[in-house]
Amino acid sequence: MATNTKSSGIALALAAILIWSTLALISTRLSRISPFLILTIAFLISGFISLLRVKAWRIPLTTILVGAAGIFGYHSLYFKAFSLAPAVEANLINYLWPLLIVVLSPVILPGYHLTFRHILAALLGLTGAALIVTEGRLTIDLIYLPGYLLAFGAAVTWAVYSLLTKRLPPFGTESVSVFCLISGLLSLVIFLLTGGRVSDFQSLTITEWTLICLAGIGPLGAAFYFWDAALKRGDPRTIGSLAYLTPLLSTLNLLIFANKTLTLISGLAMILIIGGAVLGSLERQTG
């Protein structure tokens, strides 16, 4: 039974990762729109379920605060980081979150210990993600330090949120809709406070509305539910290693649907990421 539970956790994590990998492709077609406008619409869509499921709200206030802080906090820090630092470097720092899930597991969750296999898998994934994101080129400029720090803060936020969902009093995955709804309302407040106007909603084209709705249904919606369910059933050390498949699959989507070119560096990165994911997901009787 335990093996079946772990297997279902891996399957659910892979579903979340596959859906998340579409976000970059969607984002490339929404670059002219304020990130908080996108988040407002997408999160309100993904949180709509909470208005139909009263049971979703029957959770402690602490759980609501952790959930909303995790989802809204991560995306706020993520988009702010991209406005203050070059996208490549900010994205690379952001992709520390799978590694942080692995290394913070024994710190936040009792009964978990790191093995050499978990550490090696995470480092292989990190190296591959670094190559995917930087394409072998990386320039660190201290003038962008605030952006780098925000990107690191985003990584820490998502890793801690992911692990705390296993530490909090048990709650149904449907309660993730509450986190999303609150995140949507907070995004709307930030959008309006930073100069956004109601007319900005009306200026969206049909295509943009469609893409934002797809984001709310998929990478900013269903993926959160799959991720929560995966963490409840699986080993966070294994799931953290698998998470490095996100930049790999995201790159493949861009290659297939956005006419990007596969380079030697990207090919090497794919090998490292797949190797790390496989190594991290191997079953072990102890540890």
Rank of each mutant, 00 (worst) to 15 (best):
T165A: 05
T165D: 00
T165H: 01
K166V: 12
K166D: 04
K166P: 02
R167T: 03
P169E: 09
F171C: 03
F171I: 06
G172P: 01
G172D: 15
G172L: 06
G172V: 00
T173D: 10
E174Q: 12
E174C: 00
S175V: 09
S175A: 10
V176C: 10
V176W: 08
V176L: 04
V176S: 09
S177L: 04
V178D: 02
V178S: 03
F179A: 13
F179V: 07
F179K: 08
C180P: 00
C180Q: 15
I182P: 02
I182S: 09
S183E: 01
L185G: 01
L185V: 15
L186F: 09
L186D: 03
L186A: 11
L186N: 00
S187R: 00
V189F: 14
V189I: 15
V189H: 04
V189C: 07
I190Q: 03
I190F: 08
F191Y: 14
L192T: 12
L192W: 13
L193T: 14
T194R: 15
G195R: 11
G195Y: 06
G195F: 08
G196W: 07
G196K: 02
G196V: 12
G196Y: 02
R197Y: 13
R197A: 14
R197C: 04
V198E: 09
V198S: 07
V198I: 15
V198R: 04
V198K: 03
S199Q: 15
S199R: 15
D200Y: 10
D200V: 09
F201Y: 12
F201E: 06
